[in-house]
Every structure is written in C-alpha cells, then in structure tokens.
C-alpha cells in the first residue's frame, strides 16, 4: 500500500515515516508478541518433555487416555482431537480469506469470513471444554498406592480395562460424610469416591478374572499387567481410590500428566478464547464500516496473524500431547 513512503525517505532514515523491515508498526509489534508468546509455549511444552523424560517408563499413553467422542460409546482414540485440529485449520483458512477480501476492500466478504472464523473458534473452545469434562470425570477408576503410583484393573481374558463399578463389592458402613454442621464449624470433608478402598479390594479378591495393571511400560510399549497373585499382593500398598483426574490425583497415570494437560491445553484454550473475543470486536468494526472509512483492512490482517499463531501452537500441542 504505502511502499512508496520508504523510497521517498531513503537518505534520511531518522526522519520518521520509515518502516523497519518493510512492515507497518502494528504488524511488527504483532510479530514481537507472537515471537515472545511462541517462546512461552515452548517453555511449557519443553517442561512437559522434561517431566516425561524423567518418568519415561511410567508415563501415561495418550491413546489410552483420550478415547472418547461425543455421542458415541466405545474406544476411539485420536478421532476427536483430529476433528478439533481440522476445525482450527479450517478457521485459519476462513481468516486468511477474510484478510484477502480485505485487500480487495470487499466489506461484506470480510464480514462473512470473519463470522465463519468466529464460529470455528467457538466450536474448538467448546470441544476443548468437553474434552476437559470427560478427562475430569474419568472413565474406569483406579487405586493409588502409598508411593503415588496408579493401579488400574483389567479383565484377564480380554485385556481391556474394567470400571470399578463392574466388580467392586458393596460393603455396608456406618461412616457418613463429615459436614461442618456436625462438628467444629471449620472442619468438613469432600464427598469421597463412589467406592471405598476396601470395597475395591474385596471386589478384586472375589473376582478371579480381575488383574492389576501398573504404570510401567514394558518392552512392547504396553502397560505391564500383573498376574493374579502379584495383583492381590500389590493391593496391600493401596491407600485410596481415584476417580477421574484433577491437579492432585489422576486415574490415568502420573499426576503430572494431568497437571500439564490442564495447564497447556488450558493456556492454549485461553488464547483461542481471547482470539474469538478480539475477532468479534474486529467483526463488529467491519460491520460498522470502520475500516472502510479508514481506507484499509490492516486490522483484520493483524488479528489474522494472532489467530494463525493460535493454530500454529495447536499443531505443536497436538503432536507433543497426543501423537508422540
């Protein structure tokens, strides 16, 4: 647009009106921000790598953790994340089409493409929320040992994981949840798990086909399944039942896996959310004709840069969290 300015000021570089690297002020600042944000995300992903290398032989296998697809029951590793990836790439494409339409000063086209981009971002954030919900709720349940290791349960014949509900024995108890109203006002406890530890242990003892699966990855790259006597033996070390995942306990394996999952996908999801908000503002500005009056759509290009960057980060999160 204004490349001629640079030519005119050759010779007096310090006189103002000169654009470093041929990019406008706003675009250059967006690149500054993107570069620093890229380094922040690499810090997160590298620290994930650090913890994973530290516990390389007991790290959860992502394929066994993220196996759910909304409205479908069964074991579908990867499909839903792949869908999320496509959604984000598609919204990147509509964004870049909006930028292109902006170069040709086509107001209505810019608006349509911006709107589609916002829809795509919304679907992505919603999918991520669903993924979080499924992860927090958990699928099978497990027990945790004194050393913080997770023991899961599998069926001896099929080798598939078994939910606690399928084998735990119900044992009557007088124990009720301690609430603040029944004692000192500042002491209470959380509701506790659906099954207590002694119920799970009794269930394993009475069901001959239940075996314990440890976190250790064997030579074939699978989690180690103990035989019957070892299974009963190792349950003596159990201290509690874990259902689902949070920042302290994680039924899928190492708790750091859950911590990094929440932190990295959460930080990325927050970026997508802010991207949607910024896109909305720009979308309304396009509708109001702000950029038509201004004579150029560079603002769309700048939010476009941010939006593509969010997509770029997801490409890496996808690889290092779900694939590798």
């Amino acid at each position: 647009m204004d490349t001629t300015v640079t030519n005119a000021t050759t010779g007096k570089v310090w006189g103002g009106g000169n654009q470093p690297m041929g990019a406008s002020y706003g675009k250059l600042m967006m690149w500054f921000f993107i570069l620093s944000d890229a380094l922040t995300f690499s810090g997160f992903l590298v620290s994930y790598g650090f913890s994973r290398f530290k516990f390389l032989d007991i790290w959860p296998i992502a394929d066994e953790v993220f196996t759910h697809v909304p409205f479908f029951h069964g074991n579908y590793p990867m499909y839903y994340v792949a869908f999320m990836t496509f959604i984000l790439i598609m919204s990147s494409v509509t964004m870049v089409l909006a930028v292109d339409a902006g170069h040709h000063m086509k107001q209505s086209k810019v608006a349509i493409y911006m709107f589609l981009t916002i829809i795509g971002g919304g679907i992505f954030v919603g999918s991520q929320a669903w993924e979080w919900g499924t992860f927090i709720k958990g699928s099978y349940g497990a027990v945790e040992t004194r050393g913080g290791r997770i023991l899961q349960f599998v069926d001896a014949e099929t080798g598939h994981q078994v939910a606690l509900a399928d084998f735990a024995t119900t044992i009557e108890t007088d124990r009720v949840q301690h609430e603040a109203k029944n004692g000192i006002w500042f002491e209470s406890e959380s509701a506790g798990t659906t099954y207590r530890l002694e119920e799970v242990v009794a269930g394993v003892q009475s069901h001959e086909n239940i075996l314990v699966r440890t976190e250790t990855i064997n030579a074939e790259g699978k989690k180690t399944v103990l035989d019957r006597s070892e299974s009963l033996e190792i349950l003596n070390q159990a201290v509690g039942v874990v259902e689902g995942a949070n920042l302290i306990h994680n039924e899928y394996g190492h708790r750091l896996f859950a911590d990094f999952f929440f932190f990295i996908t959460g930080f990325h999801g927050f970026h997508v959310f802010s991207g949607v908000m910024i896109n909305l503002i720009i979308f309304f500005n396009v509708l109001l004709g702000t950029y038509e009056k201004r004579g150029h759509y560079e603002m769309v290009e700048k939010v476009g840069l941010y939006w593509h960057f969010v997509d770029l980060v997801w490409v890496f999160v996808f690889t290092f969290f779900y694939l590798v």
Partner: peptide
C-alpha cells in the same frame, strides 16, 4: 532450551 532440558530430564531418569 529443548536440548538442555531434555538432557536434564533424562539424567534424572
């Protein structure tokens, strides 16, 4: 960053 941190993680392993 990656090289240093991953080598360190491997060392702790």
């Amino acid at each position: 960053l990656t090289a240093l941190i991953l080598i360190e993680g491997n060392y702790i392993y």
